[in-house]
Amino acid sequence: MKSTFTIYIVLICLLAAANEAFSQGCIAVRSGAGVNVGGGAVLGKGQWNAATNFRYFHSYKHFRGKHEETERVENGTEVINDSYFFDFLIAYGISDRLSVNFVLPFVNHARSSMYEHGGNPPNGLGDRHSTYSSGLADIRFGASYWLLDPATHAGSNISLGLGMKLPSGNYRAKGKFYNQGPNRDQVITSGLDQSIQPGDGGVGITFESQAYHNISEKLVVSALLYYMVNPREKYSTTNFRGSASELSVSDQYAARLGALYVTPVQGLGLYGGARLEGVPSSDLIGGDEGFRRPGYIVSLEPGVNYGIGNMAFSLTVPIAVDRARVQNFSDKQRTKETGELVNGDAAFADYLINFGFTYRFGMARHTVDVNDFTGSQN
């Protein structure tokens, strides 16, 4: 039936949102936003959902506050991050309203810069080199619950989720830095930049909510809200010079609002929306000391979803329209001391590529026959 298929596609869209990485460069907003709710969004009792998601971004544009420092690219001193994310998710429906999930994430990062390898010209004597990191990131698991009974509220619903993020990813990964030492002639192995560490070092607690409303048989609006609390304040490591450095374990947040149009083409849905993601200057719990690059990204997000049988594919490309690197703890302290505004910089991407695949299997006690999910629009 049309209405059933529409709901199925929008829930796949929510699942795609659940697995996306909220990370766009030096603002280290890591993956995982919405994963708990989305992990069980399409499940009935006794059903399983297996999903994979691939994400990529190329960040290189520097912002200080909301001001873009275009001279960094013009002078060739920009910092370039190329980041790849691979998530593997498994979820199980305990009931038609309650589901649990587990996410195994992997990352691969490459960071190219001059300032970390001898310094930017005209004062630096270095040249451009790259550092790398890869491997297991921070494992996530959680549970979500639909507030309304899906059997009687198929056209609209809202869910709440609670989860945890474990510090399984290496947060003290090291790499080679060139042109170091007094004479700029040494190669040292030291701690990588915070933005390409596979993990953030904290045990995080996630709170989230997803909702959808079926306006018609072909148009559905959906929304997502997400916040991760990281109680740990900071940890010690080394920087590119080999000296001691303290990095912040920061909170993260995200929001998403959009609409899905189910086209006359069997199985095909078109998505359009907007999203906000970021790292706050101050955490809800714990202190704010240690280095962090707080900021936010606002993006317009076109996408496409295709469902066939119990499988679904999704592709979204959020395009940044507003970016800002806001003041961190030390920026605020120095501003107080000097009376002049101090605001560090960060590099951002222009867009993010997300591609996901989901497969639902297992028996479910549900009022809707599984054949209704094949894409039929009779």
Rank of each mutant, 00 (worst) to 15 (best):
F88Y: 13
H58M: 00
L257V: 14
D200E: 11
M363D: 15
A364F: 00
K174D: 03
D372F: 03
S376G: 13
V187T: 15
S248R: 15
N179S: 12
R325Y: 01
E301T: 14
R184H: 13
F348S: 02
Q47R: 09
D369A: 12
E233Y: 01
R72Q: 11
G46Y: 05
Q327C: 07
K2Q: 11
A320R: 08
V298N: 02
G199A: 06
Y253L: 04
L15W: 01
I188C: 04
F207I: 05
L257M: 06
M311L: 10
V73L: 11
V35W: 02
G46Q: 06
L224T: 06
V321G: 02
E69F: 10
A50Q: 05
E301H: 00
F5S: 03
F54P: 02
T4L: 03
S95P: 04
R334Y: 07
A320M: 08
G65M: 08
T358R: 14
G119V: 04
D149P: 03
N378D: 14
V203I: 12
R172Y: 09
F106I: 04
H58L: 11
S282L: 02
L14W: 00
T263P: 10
G181N: 10
G161I: 07
L160Q: 03
E340I: 05
L352E: 10
N371C: 04
G295E: 02
L43G: 10
G307S: 14
T70V: 10
E69N: 11
S282Y: 05
V229A: 11
F63Q: 05
H366C: 11
Q266I: 03
T358A: 12
G287K: 11
H153Y: 10
L98F: 15
A274I: 14
I205F: 14
K218S: 15
G201W: 06
V249W: 01
A259G: 15
R334E: 13
G34F: 08
A254T: 05
G119I: 03
S236T: 11
R334K: 15
S113H: 02
P231W: 02
A18R: 08
V221L: 06
A18S: 15
F348W: 06
R140Y: 02
F85P: 00
T189A: 08
H213I: 05
I158P: 00
G307L: 02
K332C: 02
G303P: 11
E74C: 00
Y235G: 05
E233A: 07
L43I: 07
G34M: 05
V370Q: 14
D283L: 01
V100I: 15
Q333G: 01
I27S: 01
R111N: 10
G119H: 09
I9P: 00
D149F: 04
Y56R: 12
T70N: 10
N310L: 11
A151N: 13
N214H: 09
C26M: 14
V326D: 10
E208P: 00
Q333A: 09
L125M: 09
K234G: 01
Y92C: 10
V326Y: 00
